[in-house]
Amino acid sequence: MKLHAEKRETVGTSSSKKARADKKIPAVVFGKEFGSTPVLIDRKELEDLVRELGRNAVFNVDIDGKETQVLIKNIDRSALKPEFYNVEMQAITKGQKVTVSVSITIEGAEEVKEGIVTQALNELEVEVAPADIPNEIKVNVETLEIGDVVTVADLVTPSNLTVVTEDDTTVVVVAAPQLEEEPEEGSDVDAEMPQPEVIGEDKE
């Protein structure tokens, strides 16, 4: 897929508001051998591309007739509406590796009969060639028991990438369920509660 973009003649809050009103998204393309270039892209084109290829997709952007291969580095969403607000795209040069965040997917949690499975890390930061970016990193937890912890060092990742996230970072933990304490037999809960004072009542 390919995005079409046009160079922005003006920048700033007012011009960005006007662009969004015209269903355009303010964006910037930057890279080691590519000067930072403010552009405007069609909102629907970007939404369709991200929906089909994902956030880590590598694609071409056509800026006024000149194509450049890019990767989405950051997308800001509107706080008031479910739509994209600003986009940063990194221009990629031949042979260059990029640092991206890849989603971590938990499998087999329903097979854990005892304990509560909690995912502590949702994304793994990796360095990889653009063509080799995985869609996700999977971790199977079905054999885990209470007290078990999975760290980044335990993840099985493709050999063509380098993990940037620290090895000792916790990914998944299985904890014992918390039991509610029952009142001791024979204790009178109501008796232990302080009685409200009646205003205006005569005191002896």
Rank of each mutant, 00 (worst) to 15 (best):
P158H: 05
E127I: 11
N140K: 12
D154W: 06
S159K: 15
V117E: 07
A109Q: 14
V150C: 02
E111I: 13
P134C: 05
I137E: 00
I137K: 07
L144S: 00
V141D: 07
K97A: 04
T99M: 09
I137Y: 01
E107F: 13
S159R: 14
N140V: 11
V141P: 00
P158C: 05
I116N: 13
E114Q: 12
D154E: 07
V150N: 06
K97D: 11
T151K: 13
D154N: 01
D132Y: 04
T151Y: 08
T157M: 06
P158S: 02
T118Y: 07
I133P: 02
V102G: 06
P158V: 08
I104C: 06
I146P: 00
I106K: 00
V98N: 11
L124D: 07
V152I: 01
E123Q: 14
D148P: 03
V126C: 09
I133D: 00
I104F: 08
V128R: 00
V156E: 14
P134K: 06
I146R: 00
P130E: 03
A153G: 10
P158R: 07
A120Y: 08
K97H: 10
Q96R: 11
G95K: 07
G108K: 13
A131C: 03
V126H: 06
V102R: 04
T105S: 14
A120I: 05
V152P: 02
E110L: 03
G115K: 06
I146T: 08
Q96M: 10
G147P: 01
E127N: 14
E114G: 03
A109E: 15
E136A: 08
V102E: 04
G108A: 13
A131T: 09
V139M: 01
Q119T: 00
T105Q: 15
N140A: 13
K113H: 09
D132G: 07
E111S: 15
S159H: 14
V126A: 01
N122D: 15
E145T: 14
V102S: 02
T151Q: 09
V152A: 04
N135D: 13
V100L: 10
K113R: 12
A129T: 08
N140F: 09
I104K: 04
Q96V: 08
A153Q: 12
V102K: 06
L121H: 05
E125I: 13
S159G: 11
E142P: 06
I133V: 01
K94C: 05
K94P: 12
T118W: 06
D154A: 02
E136L: 11
E125W: 03
S103M: 12
